[in-house]
């Protein structure tokens, strides 16, 4: 016959196990993402997307999120790489700063347009096969 205390410890263990499991499954991380692309004479010249783990806690509340299919190891870089078009469309919606310069010398035109997403902190929730990405503001 088991004592009452023994039963309680068992319940506590089960509860802790469930809690730990949920933490493992639902893992929230913060990332710093910046994006920049250059267009020269109406042709894409250069495109850069930087992703890094945030070294310190970001401030702000999560805004409208994007859900992407994630792949093994909860790797954000790989997830974004596999869903690049979707993620870039999402970045465009967030807002980009536009810098355009055009020079016409003796009727010969040269133009450069740079679109930039300044380094922004994103909260990423990894869940089974999905990653929910939300910018913090």
């Amino acid at each position: 016959m088991r004592s009452r205390d023994g039963n309680r410890s068992l319940t506590r263990t089960i509860f802790l196990l469930i809690l730990l499991n949920s933490f493992v499954l639902l893992e929230a991380k913060e990332f710093l993402i910046s994006y920049r692309y250059v267009i020269k004479d109406a042709t894409l010249y250069n495109e850069e997307l930087y992703i890094s783990n945030s070294m310190q806690k970001c401030l702000g509340k999560p805004q409208k999120s994007l859900t992407l299919t994630s792949y093994k190891n909860n790797d954000l870089k790989e997830t974004i790489e596999k869903n690049s078009q979707e993620f870039i469309d999402f970045i465009h919606k967030l807002g980009l700063s536009v810098e355009h310069k055009e020079k016409t010398t003796n009727h010969i035109n040269r133009s450069t347009t740079i679109l930039t997403l300044k380094t922004t902190c994103f909260k990423v929730d990894f869940n089974d096969n999905f990653a929910r990405i939300a910018p913090l503001k």
């Binding site: 919606k93 967030l94 700063s97 310069k101 055009e102 016409t104 003796n106």
Partner: peptide, 16 residues
């Protein structure tokens, strides 16, 4: 001898 026109724009576009 040389005719040059420079145009530039700088802005932040959101919700397009």
């Amino acid at each position: 001898k040389r005719s040059t026109i420079r145009t530039s724009v700088k802005a932040m576009v959101r919700n397009a």
